[in-house]
């Protein structure tokens, strides 16, 4: 049996879900026996390749994330929303209650931690924030969801090991699933 291709992606999130993924500890060797991790935030910046499983952390907050997730969906047989930001926007979506301009002004200009008058960064290489933050399932079709902030390492390993062994994971039991 040929090895499966696995990718992990970090969109609008804090990387906490990836930390939790690393918390599977030595069980990563079992994953490595069944899959090659062909793309993740610590490999170099090649274009997202065709994969069997993509674990996507974070919400869609910007033009760049939108382009990325549409590309990832095309390239992935199975797309998994990893964590509360990807599933319900979580903390990244807390700016959705306000107007984007007000959020940026408050963060960069009016922030109490500013020594002087701050200014809004405006470099061509920076991503452009969308007016609203979206969970993945509002943009693309998502195959599996692992909620949690972060999801537990056990839940992540369980889903990976089921899928890598061609079984369908069932996270519905409370002991595996958590919100927040």
């Amino acid at each position: 049996m040929s090895k499966k291709k696995l990718a992990t992606v970090w969109l609008g999130g804090c990387s906490g879900c990836h930390m939790s993924l690393l918390d599977i500890d030595e069980r990563i060797l079992e994953v490595a026996q069944l899959a090659d991790i062909v793309k993740c935030p610590i490999v170099d910046g090649k274009e997202f390749p065709e994969v069997d499983i993509a674990l996507v952390e974070g919400a869609i907050t910007s033009d760049e994330h939108l382009k990325e997730i549409l590309h990832i969906r095309k390239q992935s047989k199975i797309l998994i929303s990893l964590g509360d930001c990807a599933i319900m926007t979580n903390v990244t979506g807390m700016r959705n209650y306000f107007n984007l301009k007000d959020v940026i002004e408050t963060s960069y200009v009016g922030s109490v931690s500013n020594d002087d008058a701050g200014e809004v960064p405006n470099h061509w290489a920076l991503l452009k924030l969308n007016d609203k933050v979206y969970p993945l399932q509002e943009i693309v079709e998502v195959d599996y969801f692992i909620p949690g902030c972060p999801p537990s390492a056990d839940a992540i390993f369980y889903v990976l090991s089921e899928l890598l062994n061609d079984r369908i994971p069932d996270l519905s039991e409370a002991k595996k699933m958590k919100h927040g």
Binding site: S81, V91, G93, M94, P135, Q137, P147, H179, G180
Partner: peptide, 30 residues
């Protein structure tokens, strides 16, 4: 309902309900 920063995280009847009905995501626009 942002569980991760909520004062009631872990002691919330709505959160428990979400587990009881096996809610892993929300299909409606927020």
């Amino acid at each position: 309902h942002v569980c991760s920063v909520c004062i009631a995280n872990g002691h919330c009847e709505l959160q428990k309900l979400a587990y009881d009905v096996k809610m892993d995501h929300i299909r409606y626009p927020y």
